[in-house]
Amino acid sequence: MGACTQQSNFCSYQNTDVFSKKTFQYLENLMYSKKVEKDHHLFVDNDPADRLYYLKQGQIKITKMNEEGKELVLYIFQAGDLIGELGISTESRYSYSAKATRTCEVGIIQQKDLETIIWQHGEFAVEFMRWMSNMHAITRSKFRDLMLYGKKGALCSTLIRLANSYGIMTPEGIVLSQHFTNTDLAELIGTSRETVNRMLSQFKKDGAVIISDGTIIITSLEYLKTACSCENCSIEICRI
């Protein structure tokens, strides 16, 4: 599974890195595979939360729709990530949707099977709790940045997270290996594309970013960190 580097990829961390090779094998033994076509849903808001998904290939976007019909992107999961949550009862349901942004292959783990290995293997239970704690910490930190530091702070925080998830170190700066439009960025912070346009224009004037043929290059990570009062969270928390 992934690890951070300082020369090629800025970071290749997956949220399953909290599991040891031995305990992750328990999960792999439970999985059965499913293909999810691009733009199809893995699950939708209010579906039963009775299984987990291991993303073997592709990309999954987790979204929540507000009362005005505007979509907020909560997470973007990559190959190697574990998706979902363990319901506290058989009636638990998802409060968000998961959509494939490209063709995916996922491993599906039923809750009843997951509960069995939690009961049988204490080391797995500890690592699973650590995974859940990390996912909750990611969510808390994202909402903290949005609530405390406004749209500018939220955008700066999002660019840092994107750098940690997709950044490649180059002499010019940190190049995001995946293309993100201003609309994509707006969905990640719950604002309009026009607002993102204005903020990025200011960032460019301030020398913090370069945008070349739609590719974002971060030239001043310190500028972004200052704007969102960065707390230098660990790499497993500071990700998109």
Rank of each mutant, 00 (worst) to 15 (best):
I138T: 11
L72K: 15
D184R: 10
R93M: 06
F128P: 05
K152S: 10
K64I: 12
V175Q: 13
Q202H: 10
A137E: 15
D17S: 13
K225H: 02
S192F: 01
M1V: 03
K34R: 15
Q78T: 12
Y54E: 09
E91W: 05
T23G: 03
T63G: 02
Q120T: 10
M65N: 07
F77Q: 07
Y96M: 10
N232I: 02
I108V: 15
A79Q: 03
S201D: 00
I109G: 04
L86T: 05
A100R: 14
G153D: 08
Y96C: 07
I218C: 14
E71W: 02
K38A: 10
R93W: 02
S33N: 08
E71H: 09
I118S: 11
I76A: 00
Y166S: 14
Y32P: 01
W131E: 01
E91S: 07
C11F: 02
M199N: 03
H40E: 04
Q14S: 12
F77I: 01
L159N: 14
K204N: 00
L52M: 14
L30E: 15
V106S: 01
I174D: 02
N164Y: 11
S8A: 15
T195P: 00
L55I: 10
N15D: 12
R93H: 07
L74Y: 05
A79F: 07
N134C: 05
Q202G: 04
T226S: 04
I118T: 12
S165Q: 11
E91I: 07
I60S: 01
